[in-house]
Design a protein around this nucleic acid. Structure first.
Length: 405
RNA sequence: GUGAGCGUAGCUCAACUGGCAGAGCAUCGGACUGUGGAUCCGAGGGUUGGGGGUUCAAGUCCCCUCGCUCACCCCA
């Protein structure tokens, strides 16, 4: 309170207790991703603004309102990455990686939105991009992997929704049909939807107000080509066979042009209005869009911050193996000696750097969660031992430093 | 960008229709100068988010502003 320097709106500090949870969940994730053949990649925090404009397209709202864009000293327009797919594909092309590639990442992202529950201006994505393969089994594997991770993270009330959005051509045809339908009902639509209609008609169907009223609206599913339909059926068949519970949501869409075929989203009832913990799908158009050869790809991103909220898991403080307490200068020196030896053995050990009363030192030992307190005084010095106090039972015994457990 | 709710000690919250800013927890110290977690005693810690106004008097009423939270918009 009254502090001059506080964190920027929409950012947050990850304190030690929460970080312990990050580490725990990330370790589980690394293990799983490794087993699926993924390799990790990290790209720069900022890129040319052009990269994102090209990948996101002409959705001006996003470009103008939601991105952190600035001009550097050379006059170039740069943008803090709002998502991971375009940078990873850029890195894939720029470094001449050979398909197929399974790339995973854990990186922070930036979007200039008003914060709300589970939505921050700086947030973390755990994602994967499987580049160079087009087969229903690849889509299904990516979906299954996302589901498995979310499950492994302990996210509560998981719901996996999936749909096919076909090809760009399929969507173009459908868009016209849907627009005709919506225009005919313009008067019944809410204010937002009337505005939304011309710019992004597919979104009108998941409007909280109008969506439920438009039950007889034409569905994208019915306008897919035969090839897309059977591709989707094959994806679902794999999921069934692998025991992944899903729900087909025929209104699930993606806004950008480079998306194709499979689209999915994982939601959790443990979140607020922003109830998606992650999503993904196939994007066969993007690699070419960014200047590479036509290359199929599929991937997903999980919102790590939301995963944490939806898992309900609490962090914990890392306990100490030993705390060394001493009485007098000579004992202090001996204490540091023992401390070094313990640390060399990989033990988590601490000492009171400031000379304080034994009582204060014991208090510190307790607060730091020490398993054992080692007490060194004149008596111990003379006998070449330390007094080992079990902080749980209060039991004490004398041991030579080399005999410590 | 829009809307609503909330800002009092480090944390959780009190303070009747305007009348001396408090408690619990936490922190530090002492009771116990070689022993933590329990108990008892004590201490520190606040421009009541900030600014302005009304009033003899403002945490309380009015205006402005900042911050937080949630929702809308948007959602790559």
């Amino acid at each position: 309170m009254g502090l001059k320097y506080t964190k920027i709106k929409g950012t947050r500090d990850i304190l030690p207790e929460e970080y312990s949870l990050w580490r725990e969940l990330l370790e589980r994730a690394f293990k799983i991703l490794r087993s699926y053949g993924y390799n990790f990649i990290v790209t720069p925090t900022f890129e040319r603004t052009e990269l994102f404009i090209r990948s996101i397209g002409d959705t001006t709202d996003i470009v103008e309102k939601e991105m952190y864009t600035f001009t550097d000293r050379g006059g170039r327009s740069l943008t803090l990455r709002p998502e991971g797919t375009a940078p990873v594909v850029r890195a894939y092309l720029e470094n001449h990686l050979i398909p197929p590639q399974k790339l995973a990442y854990f990186m922070n992202m930036f979007r200039a939105e008003r914060p709300q529950k589970g939505r921050f201006r700086e947030f973390w994505h755990l994602g994967v991009e499987f580049i160079g393969v087009r087969d229903p089994s690849a889509d299904a594997e990516v979906v299954e992997l996302a589901y498995r991770l979310v499950h492994e993270f302990g996210v509560k009330e998981i719901k996996l929704e999936i749909n096919s959005i076909g090809t760009v051509e399929d969507r173009k045809r459908y868009r016209e049909v849907l627009l005709d339908y919506l225009r005919a009902r313009k008067d019944e639509l809410c204010e937002d939807c009337r505005r939304r209609m011309e710019r992004n008609p597919l979104r009108v169907l998941d409007c909280k107000i109008d969506g439920p009223k438009l039950l007889d609206a034409p569905l994208l599913t019915d306008y897919l080509s035969q090839a897309s339909k059977s591709y989707f059926e094959d994806v679902l068949e794999y999921l069934r066979r692998w025991g992944v519970p899903f729900e087909v949501n025929k209104r699930l869409v993606r806004g950008l042009d480079y998306y194709t075929e499979t689209a999915f989203e994982i939601k959790s009832g443990a979140l607020g209005a922003q109830d998606s913990v992650g999503g993904g799908g196939r994007y066969d158009g993007l690699v070419e869009e960014l200047g590479g050869p036509p290359t199929p790809a599929v991937g997903f991103a999980l919102g790590f911050d939301r995963v944490l909220i939806a898992s309900g898991l609490q962090g914990y403080r890392e306990p100490l193996d030993y705390f060394i307490a001493y009485l007098g200068d000579e004992a202090r020196e001996k204490g540091f000696e023992v401390l070094q030896a313990l640390r060399k053995r990989g033990k988590r050990a601490e000492i009171s750097h400031e000379k304080k009363s034994l009582k204060s030192q014991m208090k510190l030992a307790d607060r730091l969660g020490a398993r054992y307190a080692l007490i060194i005084g004149d008596e111990e010095l003379a006998r070449g031992v330390v007094k080992v106090r079990d902080m749980e039972t209060g039991e004490e015994k004398f041991l030579k430093p080399s005999e410590l457990p």
